[in-house]
Amino acid sequence: MSEQLLDVQDLRVMLPTRKGLLTAVDGVSMSIAAGEVLGVVGESGAGKSLTGAAITGLLEPPLYIANGKIELEGKRIDNLSYSKMRRIRGKQIGAIFQDPLTSLNPLYSVGRQLVETITTHLPVSDAVAKRQAIDLLKEVGLPAAEARIGHFPHQFSGGMRQRVVIALALCANPRLIIADEPTTALDVSIQAQIIRLLKRLCREHKTAVMLITHDMGVIAETADRVAVMYAGRIVEVGPVKDVIKNPHHPYTVGLMNSIPSIAREVEWLTQIDGAMPRLNDIPDGCAFHPRCPHAFERCRRERPNLIPMRNSQAACWLCKKEGADEQRQ
């Protein structure tokens, strides 16, 4: 199936402030095929979550989409009215947020929240919806689903609540799920379970996932392809195996090196020196050059676009150099 499920072209998200317009997401293009898991990785503030929010149409004002287009199954969705977009949210694009403890309304039982979502999108009666809700809860591995459907969120543990959240995201059978840091707030021991569950469910339902995280390890385990973001731009994108085995962008290399490994015995955990620039302070040229160990003259002057490599693409002048060297030889 070559047709892309989601296609984002040159997306630009702007943030008006008192000191002028800031660019929060700068010309991001990405696509997700049906059933594919795309990992989006980067430090906090890289624009990962904003990209997700722009796709679901839930950017919080004053943030707005200044440029670009978003297509779902070949139809533009970035210029739809709020009420048309509402019908797509939950039905075609599901979402999972970071913190399961606060994603559920504390005053309603989980059953009510499930039934409400199902009946909003599907033409079924409350009784049918309730049966579907119980099935879903069983599917996400909630023990004694029939008994627990009437329970309130505070009666569930964090991991169980995230299972409920996943059930809620899946309940109208969406084609795409945007999972924004789905495991960050959970215990490490639960994280793996939730990731495995998400992966299994999406395979069974043939749902594509945009998995937003800062955890390279989760990406390596889960994603088919990965997009690395830095300061509002995609700096490297490609199949997960290629990017992990053979990272081209120095930032990706830095991210890979920061994953602690039991195999390597090290005295210190490696980190990338410095911090990501603030939005009002993005340097000229390549945004990463002040932190880059390989930066040279051109990086300070000119901003690199994505340059195609063998299987992946990277926005780095080093790649151009390598490519040119290869050609010269």
Binding site: T56, R86, D99, L104, L168
Partner: peptide, 26 residues
Amino acid sequence: RTDYIKFARARGLTNRAVNFGHALKN
């Protein structure tokens, strides 16, 4: 501003359900 309101929107609930069902009751 809470997450459960954002999540309620992300689930595609109608404005009325979000504002009066979820927000007002809280």
